[in-house]
Design a protein around this nucleic acid. Sequence first.
RNA 1: CGGGGCGUGGCGCAGCCUGGUAGCGCACUUGCAUGGGGUGCAAGGGGUCCCGAGUUCAAAUCUCGGCGCCCCGACCA
Length: 569
Amino acid sequence: MRLSHYPINTLKEVPAEAEVVSHQLMLRAGLIRRLAAGLYSWLPIGLRTLRKVERIIREEMDRAGALEMLMPMVQPAELWQESGRWQQYGPELLRLKDRHQRDFCLGPTHEEVITDIVRRELRSYRQLPANFYQIQTKFRDEVRPRFGVMRAREFIMKDAYSFHVDAASLREGYRAMYDAYTRIFTRTGLEFRAVRADSGAIGGDVSQEFHVLAQSGEDAIVFSDGDDYAANLEAAAALPPPGPRPAPAQPLRKVPTPGVHTIGDLASFLSVAPARTVKTLLVEGAESDVVALVVRGDHELNAIKAQKLPGVAVPLRLASAERIRAATGAEPGSLGPVGFSGRLYADHSALALADFVCGANENDVHYTGTNWGRDVQGAIAADLRNVVDGDASPSGRGRLKVVRGIEVGHIFQLGCKYSEPMKGLVLDESGREVIMHMGCYGIGVTRIVAAAIEQNHDERGIIWPEPIAPFQVVLVAIGQQKSASVRETADRLYTELTAGGIEVLYDDRDARPGVKFADAELLGIPHRLVVGERGLEAGKLEYRHRRDTQSTDFPAADALAFIRSRLAA
RNA sequence: CGGGGCGUGGCGCAGCCUGGUAGCGCACUUGCAUGGGGUGCAAGGGGUCCCGAGUUCAAAUCUCGGCGCCCCGACCA
């Protein structure tokens, strides 16, 4: 492509709405433009990268034996009522009516539609296993779309659905998708990690997420330095500390703590480590009561773990101030387990403490020297907290490390969650009707592009991983308006390289060198070729990789071979 | 949804407090110069100041209502 014929401008200034680098750079480089909140147009250069990502996904899905198809984005309400999600899904599901006042929604995902197709088409176990996928636009009316294409309302997703006679076949199909995903993310050139996940709203039993590692990631993921254990922070188990709890050494004592409402305040007021204190959170119970959750002062409550406990309302909600007062007689900030009469869960680490500090359920008063058993009865041991750096790995080997990640893929063994209510049945070998087992597998295609930039950029702009760069080579002609030899050489190179199957972005604009270099770097094209009068006189061209700090000269005559060798490198 | 902030040429912003001619930088057009790291000079084009109502002789500016967007907290590819 010749830049002189490309009318999209790059931006020198950062648009105010863009907070994260990938969003800023995508706008500045002219890859995307915003239409409305969470809605983006893909401009030609951005679309080239998007298509490359799609191509890699398509090739690997095909190779894994999945069959591509395409389902409508607009879906009838009946299917969603059948699966029960018309009620469950909430406001993220964009609902609409047609001219006959019939209810529809914009598909946020396609389990219902595919299950409907499969239950009509597949009758026999002999047709299984089957895996269907599509690369298609999804719509989720996000509460707060942000970070550009990273969390947009409309986005492109690759979604695949597999169907099996039994759980064993599902596990096999799942494994095949795991392998395909590993190949896909490896091929995109991104640094990623597969982690165990909580299956959340989509449901099912087993699930793993694929994360691109990046400081700006919205998710916390943890892995062990001792083996291959890796999990989303939400799903990472915290082990009970080893060894028995020390015996009580101090008497229970009330101390006034005026104005102390946080663990930080408490720790400095009493000069104790936060790890010697305990915080008590009251949450709504399942039976209109309140449930107390106790974690060590320096730990954080894990909401996913907490809402799985018997008696806790789903989704997890902190109790209101009034309910807290009614249950304890105190305000948040002075709560504690001593004398609490309702259901009481305590995290393993909190339970391992002796002589700890906690609220006294009396405003501005705390206890010191608190001990389980002696002062608090009926605490149920549970894993309630987020793991932290240095915790022992649940695998039993190594220590955990917490890093940030961007979720770009998620695979699930759904089991019969959809096929059962929607009657996805086939006949098995013995002629009996059995419910199909189902897996589903998603990739955020548009999100991969943003994640790639988060992981690969510098102060000058994007640095595309080669497999998904919009062009392989940027050809910069310097002073071609003045110099016929520069112009002719650059034109000839462009023709030659393009004919040789190389994707070249040819900067033939009547612009100054600085402008061209700056744009080439902002756009992040991996290989840069410069044609200038200076080098040409010596029969040389200049080559520089986007990650290099220095250019290298090479003979103008071997351009094609030279570039080929660099592309292969 | 709850809390904070912002809506002024395509983009980034000033002006608003203390009402009276709409301004700066980038981008764009034209000309001249320049020609290896966002070049210089000059001349231009482009704005219902988010919308509506009110106060006033007069509203970008003050008041009220609406809409839109951004940022901070519970979800997801």
